[in-house]
Measured scan of single mutants.
Amino acid sequence: MSIQHFRVALIPFFAAFCLPVFAHPETLVKVKDAEDQLGARVGYIELDLNSGKILESFRPEERFPMMSTFKVLLCGAVLSRVDAGQEQLGRRIHYSQNDLVEYSPVTEKHLTDGMTVRELCSAAITMSDNTAANLLLTTIGGPKELTAFLHNMGDHVTRLDRWEPELNEAIPNDERDTTMPAAMATTLRKLLTGELLTLASRQQLIDWMEADKVAGPLLRSALPAGWFIADKSGAGERGSRGIIAALGPDGKPSRIVVIYTTGSQATMDERNRQIAEIGASLIKHW
């Protein structure tokens, strides 16, 4: 067993022997301040990774656009098919120029040779490549099948209805392509620590998230040296922004954090800054 596999296998073990965790309302004060600064709703939840206990939450059962955070769930569904012998990570998928959609920095470079399922998941999570996500959605049967996968996990809230990039439209009061912070946090925890996926697939999923290259201005910008984070960000229309993450000190994750916002007129930089400040408060009061 590799060191990384050992780390993920012992996530519940280490967490069980940690000192009790206590909620700190100071972080919620910052979440509410972010709402004021952005002029928009902000949803927040913080779960203990081992027990699933909610440590703090704000608007945990209000719907927010998922945006690209759905790509972690998508690759979880792909990995479940791999575990069941219905898919192979090494299978190569070929596609054409007509398949390319807006923001496809990886797939646009491989029109000639195609990409493997493993490479597509890596591109979808680490670079948020939209064509990679659409190609992977095709392998599982489309958005409705991802929703069905989530329902089978016990998540009857999260739903995907459309493809990239239309799913980022974020129309107010439109339930399409949305989740709730509580539902997303619980589902992410199941994917990373539950028995739904094999140990190898859980490790692969967290490795992809740990290698995320496009979430630097968010929670990662607030992390002290030595902290662990595996995350996936999302951005959408109407001032929408979000991030889902597993993080913790001492090089291992111990909490799940989900943050979503929508309806702001603020710039992307300002949305990023507010999420980073929430992260800084979380870490300060850990």
Rank of each mutant, 00 (worst) to 15 (best):
A230K: 01
L74G: 14
L49M: 14
E175L: 07
E145G: 13
M268W: 14
L247C: 10
L28Y: 12
R238W: 04
K53I: 12
Y260W: 04
I283R: 03
L47E: 10
G90D: 07
T126C: 06
G142M: 15
L89V: 09
G39R: 04
G114T: 03
H285E: 04
S122L: 09
L188V: 04
I229N: 08
A200S: 04
C75P: 00
Q265Y: 09
L199I: 15
A84K: 13
I278S: 01
K252N: 14
F64N: 01
D99E: 04
K109T: 06
E195R: 10
R241P: 00
Y103H: 04
A211Q: 14
I125F: 02
K30F: 11
T147W: 04
S264P: 04
T193F: 07
T267G: 05
R63W: 05
P181N: 01
A280L: 13
V106D: 15
S104Y: 15
D250C: 04
I283E: 03
G154I: 08
L79H: 09
A124Y: 00
L120M: 05
E46G: 12
C121N: 03
R238L: 11
G251Y: 02
L247P: 01
D33F: 03
P217W: 14
M66L: 09
A170R: 02
I229Q: 09
T262G: 08
R241L: 13
F149G: 06
V42F: 01
H285P: 04
L55W: 14
A211C: 10
R118Y: 05
M184P: 00
D161W: 02
P65R: 05
W227R: 00
K190T: 11
G114F: 03
I45L: 09
S122D: 12
R59F: 15
S57D: 04
L79I: 13
L137D: 02
L73M: 09
L223M: 15
S240T: 13
L146V: 05
L199P: 10
I275M: 11
I259W: 03
S104F: 09
Y44A: 03
N130T: 13
R271L: 10
T179L: 01
S254H: 04
K252S: 08
F58Q: 08
T107P: 01
A34Q: 09
T178Y: 11
R220C: 12
Y260R: 00
T138M: 14
D83F: 04
R92E: 10
A276G: 11
L137T: 05
L89M: 14
E46W: 14
I125W: 00
A40H: 09
Q265C: 09
S264W: 04
N173C: 11
P253W: 04
M127W: 12
R189T: 06
R91Q: 15
H151F: 04
G194I: 11
T267P: 05
S104A: 09
P143I: 13
R202P: 03
G216P: 07
S254N: 11
D99H: 07
D99N: 02
D212G: 14
L205P: 01
E119H: 10
S104R: 12
L219M: 12
H156I: 09
T126K: 06
M115N: 04
S128N: 00
F64V: 05
L282G: 08
P60C: 10
Q265D: 14
K53A: 11
Q203Y: 02
D231R: 10
A148K: 12
M67C: 05
M180L: 04
L79K: 01
I140N: 05
T187Q: 15
G234C: 09
P105K: 04
E237G: 11
E46M: 15
S68C: 02
R92S: 07
L38D: 05
K109E: 05
S51G: 03
A246I: 06
V31M: 05
A225E: 02
D269W: 03
L219T: 05
T69S: 13
K32V: 15
E35S: 13
K53W: 08
E166Q: 13
E270W: 15
L197A: 13
T267D: 03
R92Y: 14
C75W: 00
K30W: 11
T107S: 08
Q88T: 11
C121K: 00
I244M: 06
P224Q: 08
I54T: 10
S122K: 07
L49I: 15
D113F: 04
S201G: 12
K232C: 01
K213S: 03
R271K: 09
K30L: 11
K109V: 04
I93D: 09
A123F: 06
L199W: 09
V31S: 04
G39W: 07
G194D: 09
T138Y: 11
H151S: 09
A266P: 04
Q97D: 15
G39H: 06
L38S: 13
Q86H: 10
A225I: 04
P217N: 08
V157I: 13
E119S: 11
R41W: 02
R176C: 15
M115Y: 04
L47Q: 14
R63L: 13
F149R: 08
G216K: 08
S233G: 11
R92F: 10
R159E: 14
E210F: 14
T139Y: 12
A148F: 03
S80C: 10
A185P: 01
E61R: 05
E119A: 11
N152H: 10
E166W: 13
L137H: 05
G263T: 12
T147F: 02
Q97I: 04
Q203K: 01
N152Q: 07
R271F: 13
A266M: 07
V78Q: 15
H156K: 10
E270L: 03
D250I: 02
L199E: 05
R189W: 03
E26S: 11
K53H: 12
A133G: 04
T126Q: 04
S264Q: 11
G239N: 02
S128W: 00
L199G: 10
W208V: 13
E210N: 15
S80P: 02
M184C: 02
S233F: 01
G85Y: 05
I244S: 08
L188T: 06
G248F: 02
V101E: 07
T262V: 10
P217K: 15
D174V: 11
W208T: 12
L167F: 05
L146N: 13
D207E: 07
Q204G: 04
A225S: 11
D36C: 05
A123P: 00
L197G: 09
E35K: 07
G76D: 01
A230S: 09
P143F: 07
T261M: 14
A222G: 07
H24S: 05
D99M: 07
S68A: 00
I93Y: 15
E166F: 13
A245K: 00
G114A: 07
H156T: 13
V31G: 05
G52M: 10
L167R: 01
W163C: 03
I275S: 01
R220G: 11
P25L: 09
A124C: 12
P224R: 09
A200R: 07
D48M: 02
A124T: 14
L167D: 13
Q88L: 10
I93L: 15
G142W: 04
A246G: 11
P143R: 04
A40N: 02
E62M: 02
A123V: 06
V78H: 15
M268A: 10
K232S: 01
N152D: 13
L282P: 01
G226Q: 10
C121I: 13
G76P: 01
H94D: 02
E237F: 09
V214H: 13
R238D: 02
E237W: 13
A211G: 14
I171Q: 15
I244G: 07
N134S: 07
R220K: 14
L135G: 07
A222E: 08
G154L: 11
M209A: 10
A148W: 11
G248C: 07
A34K: 02
R271T: 12
